[in-house]
């Protein structure tokens, strides 16, 4: 297998996904299978093929540099669990 359970735990932690010990083995196997398939694809000769960064055959549209938005703080904070003095409140972050 290309991944061990430690790597899966680490990936889960970075993505803030809670994976139980019971599920760990399944995920390790499934994710390894995916990576094995990627390895298989890596064997294909792609010389001269441009890397694909988006499945759509199109390029980014650009917008004019104009301020179009107005202050909607009240509406946007209506669902926030806690606010004070216009700020969203979150549990204290220690630097």
């Amino acid at each position: 297998m290309s991944l061990d359970s430690g790597a899966v735990k680490n990936i889960a932690h970075l993505a803030r996904i809670d994976v139980s010990e019971a599920d760990l083995e399944t995920y390790t196997k499934d994710l390894s299978n995916i990576l094995d398939m990627v390895d298989q694809m890596n064997a294909v000769d792609v010389t001269g093929v441009e890397p694909l960064s988006n499945a759509l055959d199109a390029t980014q549209r650009l917008r004019a540099d104009v301020v179009t938005e107005t202050n909607k703080r009240e509406a946007l904070q209506a669902n926030a669990p806690a606010t004070e003095d216009g700020c969203f409140l979150v549990p204290r972050v220690i630097e």
């Binding site: 179009t68 202050n71 946007l76």
Partner: peptide, 24 residues
């Protein structure tokens, strides 16, 4: 030095009241 944000039409003017220049 733009008027609006990288991906939205919110103003980037300095010193505004908190969260008055933050849209969806």
């Amino acid at each position: 030095s733009t008027n609006s944000k990288l991906f939205s039409g919110s103003s980037i003017a300095y010193g505004a009241e908190p969260n008055t220049q933050a849209n969806e």
